[in-house]
Computed example of a mutant assay.
Amino acid sequence: MEADRPSADRDLSREVLITEGATLGLALADAVVTSLTHNTIYAVTEDLHRIEWAGGSAVRKVLTPTGSGAEHWAASDDPGHFNYWRRELEVYRSGFPAQIGLGAPDFYGAIDLDDGSVALWLERVEGSTGRDLSVAMLAETARVLGRSQGRADSPRPPWLSRRFLRTYSASKPAALRNYEDDARWDHPLIAACWPASIRDDFRAMLDNLETLLAQSESLPRVVAHLDVWPNNIVMKTSGEPAFLDWAFVGDGSVGEDIGNLIPDAVLDLLVPSDRLPELEASVFDAYLEGLVSAGWSGDAETVRLGMHTAAIKYYWLAPLLLDRVDDPEH
C-alpha cells in the first residue's frame, strides 16, 4: 500500500507512437492516447499510457533506471532487489506468469528508448477491477494464487526479488517518534477513529519486528506476486483473474500474498471495513483450498502465520497517519 499520486508523464508524441507501432506491426496514425494515473513515488515507472486504435488497444508502460520518484523507492540494478528496474521486462519477455499458472496481460513487445529506458507494450485487460471486485471475486483470486503457490515445480529465475518483506519494510520512512507522543494519540480524530488497543498492538509489532521478520523468513517459500491488491487484479468475463504490475514478484512466504490483499482492500477503501471479517475468512479458505488442490501438504496454521506476519509491511502506517493528523488533506 502506498499513497497514489497523480502521474506527471512526458508527452507521447505522434512520431514516437507511429514509430513504435510500426516496430510492433501496429498502424497507430489515428490512435487516441490517454495518460493514466500511476504512483509517481515508485521511481521505476516513468510513463503510463492507454493507446486505442481502430483495431484494438494497449497499455504502454515505460520502465527507467533513472526515475524521479521517492528516494526510498529508487530504481535498482540488483536483480534481487525489490525495486530491480528491469524485472517486469523479464517477467513479460519470458512468459513467466503462465509458467507459474497465473493470468497476466498479453505481451506485445518492448522498445528500447534512447535514454536507456524500456517501453513495454501490454494488453489492456478488460473486466472488473478495484472496488468493482466482490468478496467472492477476491476469494476466487486467492484460490488461483493458492493453486500457483502450492506447486512444487515453479521456476526460480535469477531476477526474482529476495527478502522482499524485510527490505521493503526497511525502505519506508516512518516517524517512529510518534509512537511515544501522547498528544498525537490523544488527538480527537485519532481518539474517535482508533480503538485504544491499536497503540499497544503497533508498539508490540515494532518491538518484535526482527523476530516477526525472522519468523516470516522461516516459513515455506513460494513464488509470490508481492503486490496483490484489488487495483492490480482484473477479473475477466471468463471468471479468471489477470494480475497486473509484476514489479516485485519474487520469493515470499506461503500466505504472504493474501496477507497483502486483505488489508490493502480495506485500507484503500475498496472493500467496506465492516466486511473485513468476511473478506479474511473467504480469502483465507479459498487460498488454502487452492494450495491443497495443487498438492501442498502443509498445515493451515502455517498459512495463517504467513498471512499474519505479512502485516509487518504496515508498521510504518500508524506513525505516518499520526504525523499527518492535522494535515487538511488527511
Rank of each mutant, 00 (worst) to 15 (best):
residue 92 Y to G: 09
residue 162 R to S: 07
residue 147 R to H: 10
residue 79 P to C: 08
residue 144 V to P: 15
residue 112 D to A: 13
residue 106 D to C: 05
residue 162 R to D: 05
residue 159 W to E: 15
residue 123 E to H: 06
residue 126 E to N: 14
residue 110 A to Y: 08
residue 144 V to L: 02
residue 142 A to E: 10
residue 133 L to S: 06
residue 128 S to Q: 12
residue 143 R to L: 14
residue 101 G to I: 09
residue 96 F to S: 03
residue 105 P to I: 00
residue 153 D to T: 10
residue 106 D to R: 05
residue 104 A to S: 10
residue 134 S to W: 03
residue 101 G to V: 10
residue 143 R to M: 11
residue 131 R to C: 01
residue 126 E to S: 14
residue 86 R to Y: 07
residue 120 L to N: 10
residue 162 R to C: 03
residue 138 L to G: 02
residue 85 W to H: 03
residue 125 V to R: 07
residue 95 G to N: 10
residue 110 A to T: 11
residue 119 A to C: 12
residue 144 V to Y: 05
residue 96 F to H: 08
residue 82 F to Q: 11
residue 114 D to A: 10
residue 145 L to C: 04
residue 119 A to S: 13
residue 107 F to E: 15
residue 81 H to L: 03
residue 155 P to E: 14
residue 137 M to F: 03
residue 149 Q to C: 07
residue 113 L to V: 11
residue 108 Y to G: 14
residue 111 I to A: 09
residue 79 P to H: 06
residue 131 R to W: 05
residue 92 Y to P: 12
residue 142 A to K: 00
residue 128 S to C: 14
residue 151 R to E: 02
residue 104 A to G: 05
residue 140 E to A: 04
residue 149 Q to T: 09
residue 103 G to C: 06
residue 99 Q to S: 02
residue 109 G to Y: 00
residue 117 S to K: 05
residue 132 D to L: 07
residue 100 I to G: 04
residue 147 R to I: 14
residue 84 Y to E: 07
residue 129 T to L: 00
residue 148 S to R: 00
residue 111 I to F: 07
residue 97 P to C: 06
residue 82 F to K: 15
residue 160 L to M: 05
residue 125 V to Y: 04
residue 102 L to N: 09
residue 160 L to D: 05
residue 144 V to E: 12
residue 97 P to Y: 07
residue 82 F to C: 06
residue 107 F to K: 11
residue 123 E to I: 08
residue 109 G to H: 00
residue 125 V to S: 01
residue 79 P to R: 04
residue 112 D to I: 04
residue 121 W to I: 05
residue 99 Q to G: 02
residue 158 P to H: 09
residue 137 M to Y: 08
residue 82 F to H: 12
residue 82 F to E: 05
residue 138 L to I: 01
residue 140 E to F: 02
residue 161 S to A: 13
residue 85 W to D: 13
residue 108 Y to F: 13
residue 117 S to Q: 11
